[in-house]
């Protein structure tokens, strides 16, 4: 499971930047997503995926951000599974 495609779709909708215009391995800051825009974008990401990232995550590329989200979603799914098992 990768959140990259969903992130790309969110960026296109929110900022009008098409997936082809933003190299997942390139620096987001270099593409004009400065620290303030990133803070706002991460807020949107948290709302969208129902997760909580640290307030200033150490990520510079979209691929890194996607990986961080993947990990959070996996952890959330695992804890959900554990809870379900303990309730059973």
């Amino acid at each position: 499971m990768s959140s990259l495609a969903e992130l790309q779709e969110l960026i296109e909708r929110k900022y009008g930047i098409a997936p082809a215009q933003l190299d997942p391995q390139g620096s987001m800051r270099g593409s004009g997503i400065d620290s303030l825009a990133l803070v706002e974008f991460i807020f949107e990401v948290e709302e969208r995926f129902g997760i909580t990232l640290q307030s200033n995550p150490d990520v510079d590329t979209l691929a890194e951000l996607a990986q961080l989200i993947d990990e959070q979603r996996a952890a959330k799914a695992a804890s959900g599974a554990t809870n379900a098992a303990s309730e059973a």
Partner: peptide
């Protein structure tokens, strides 16, 4: 403004 520049 671009949409990116409108953050905040």
């Amino acid at each position: 403004f671009t949409k990116l520049q409108l953050a905040g």
